[in-house]
Amino acid sequence: GLEHMADEEKLPPGWEKRMSRSSGRVYYFNHITNASQWERPSG
């Protein structure tokens, strides 16, 4: 619920959580730099 939404908002600017269609794993994508990574971004 609300706790999940608050957790999402802690991601650094530009980052969003996405799911890989090929593997079904969650990864993180930065739409500003077009960077993507499996680890949760910090800072």
Results as ranks from 00 to 15, higher is better:
Gly1Met: 13
Gly1Gln: 12
Gly1Ser: 12
Gly1Ile: 12
Gly1Leu: 13
Gly1Ala: 12
Gly1Glu: 13
Gly1Phe: 11
Leu2Pro: 12
Leu2Ala: 12
Leu2Met: 13
Leu2Gly: 14
Leu2Val: 12
Glu3Arg: 03
Glu3Asp: 11
Glu3Ser: 12
Glu3Trp: 05
Glu3Phe: 05
Glu3Pro: 13
Glu3Gln: 13
Glu3Gly: 12
Glu3Met: 10
Glu3Ala: 13
Glu3Val: 14
His4Ala: 13
His4Gly: 12
His4Asp: 14
His4Ile: 12
His4Val: 12
His4Asn: 14
His4Ser: 10
His4Tyr: 11
Met5Gly: 10
Met5Val: 12
Met5Asp: 14
Ala6Trp: 09
Ala6Arg: 12
Ala6Ser: 13
Ala6Tyr: 12
Ala6Ile: 13
Ala6Asn: 11
Ala6His: 11
Asp7Leu: 10
Asp7Gln: 10
Asp7Thr: 12
Asp7Cys: 14
Asp7Pro: 10
Asp7Glu: 12
Asp7Arg: 04
Asp7Phe: 10
Glu8Met: 08
Glu8Ala: 10
Glu8Tyr: 07
Glu8Phe: 06
Glu8Ile: 09
Glu8Val: 09
Glu8Pro: 09
Glu9Cys: 14
Glu9Gly: 08
Lys10Thr: 13
Lys10Glu: 15
Lys10Leu: 13
Lys10His: 10
Leu11Met: 06
Leu11Lys: 06
Leu11Gln: 04
Leu11His: 01
Leu11Ser: 01
Leu11Tyr: 03
Leu11Asp: 10
Leu11Cys: 02
Pro12Gln: 02
Pro12Arg: 01
Pro12Glu: 02
Pro12Tyr: 01
Pro12Ile: 01
Pro12Phe: 01
Pro13His: 09
Pro13Glu: 08
Pro13Arg: 07
Pro13Ser: 06
Pro13Phe: 12
Pro13Trp: 12
Gly14Glu: 05
Gly14Thr: 01
Gly14Ile: 01
Gly14Arg: 02
Gly14Asn: 06
Trp15Phe: 02
Trp15Arg: 02
Trp15Thr: 01
Trp15Ser: 01
Trp15Gly: 00
Trp15Asp: 01
Trp15Val: 01
Trp15Leu: 00
Trp15His: 01
Glu16Asn: 03
Glu16Trp: 03
Glu16Gln: 06
Lys17Glu: 07
Lys17Thr: 06
Lys17Asp: 01
Lys17Phe: 04
Lys17Pro: 04
Lys17Ser: 05
Lys17Gln: 08
Lys17Ala: 07
Arg18Pro: 00
Arg18Glu: 03
Arg18Asn: 02
Arg18His: 06
Arg18Gln: 04
Arg18Gly: 02
Arg18Met: 05
Arg18Asp: 01
Met19Gln: 12
Met19Val: 15
Met19Phe: 15
Met19Pro: 04
Met19Thr: 15
Met19Leu: 14
Arg21Cys: 15
Arg21Leu: 15
Arg21His: 15
Arg21Met: 15
Arg21Glu: 15
Arg21Pro: 15
Ser22Ile: 12
Ser22Thr: 15
Ser22Gln: 11
Ser22His: 15
Ser22Pro: 15
Ser22Cys: 11
Ser23Asp: 09
Ser23Trp: 07
Ser23Asn: 12
Ser23Thr: 14
Ser23Glu: 12
Gly24Ala: 06
Gly24Val: 03
Gly24Ser: 06
Gly24His: 08
Arg25Thr: 05
Arg25Lys: 09
Arg25Met: 06
Arg25Ile: 05
Arg25Asp: 03
Arg25His: 06
Arg25Gln: 07
Val26His: 08
Val26Ala: 07
Val26Phe: 14
Val26Ser: 05
Val26Gln: 05
Val26Glu: 09
Tyr27Met: 01
Tyr27Gly: 01
Tyr27Leu: 03
Tyr27Asp: 00
Tyr27Ile: 02
Tyr28Gln: 00
Tyr28Gly: 00
Tyr28Lys: 00
Tyr28Asp: 00
Tyr28Arg: 00
Tyr28Asn: 00
Tyr28Pro: 00
Phe29Ser: 01
Phe29Arg: 04
Phe29Leu: 03
Phe29Asn: 00
Phe29Asp: 00
Asn30His: 05
Asn30Val: 02
Asn30Leu: 02
Asn30Tyr: 03
Asn30Arg: 01
Asn30Gly: 01
Asn30Phe: 03
Asn30Ser: 05
His31Met: 09
His31Phe: 14
His31Ser: 10
His31Pro: 06
Ile32Gln: 08
Ile32Lys: 08
Ile32Trp: 08
Ile32Ser: 06
Ile32Leu: 12
Ile32Gly: 05
Ile32Glu: 08
Ile32Met: 09
Thr33Gly: 02
Thr33Trp: 04
Asn34Ala: 07
Asn34Cys: 15
Asn34Pro: 00
Asn34Trp: 09
Asn34Tyr: 11
Asn34Gln: 14
Asn34Arg: 14
Asn34Leu: 12
Asn34Thr: 06
Asn34Glu: 05
Asn34Gly: 15
Ala35Leu: 13
Ala35Gly: 05
Ala35Lys: 15
Ala35Gln: 14
Ala35Ser: 10
Ala35Thr: 13
Ala35His: 14
Ala35Trp: 13
Ala35Val: 15
Ser36Met: 15
Ser36Trp: 15
Ser36Tyr: 11
Ser36Gly: 04
Ser36His: 09
Ser36Arg: 14
Gln37Arg: 04
Gln37Glu: 02
Gln37Cys: 05
Gln37Trp: 02
Gln37Pro: 00
Gln37Ser: 07
Gln37Phe: 03
Trp38Val: 05
Trp38Ala: 05
Trp38Asp: 05
Glu39Val: 07
Glu39Thr: 09
Glu39Phe: 08
Glu39Tyr: 07
Arg40Ile: 07
Arg40Ala: 08
Arg40His: 10
Arg40Ser: 05
Arg40Pro: 08
Pro41Val: 01
Pro41Asp: 00
Pro41His: 00
Pro41Tyr: 01
Pro41Leu: 01
Pro41Lys: 02
Pro41Asn: 00
Pro41Ala: 02
Ser42Arg: 11
Ser42Leu: 10
Ser42Phe: 09
Ser42His: 10
Ser42Trp: 09
Ser42Asn: 12
Gly43Met: 14
Gly43Lys: 10
Gly43Ala: 13
Gly43Thr: 11
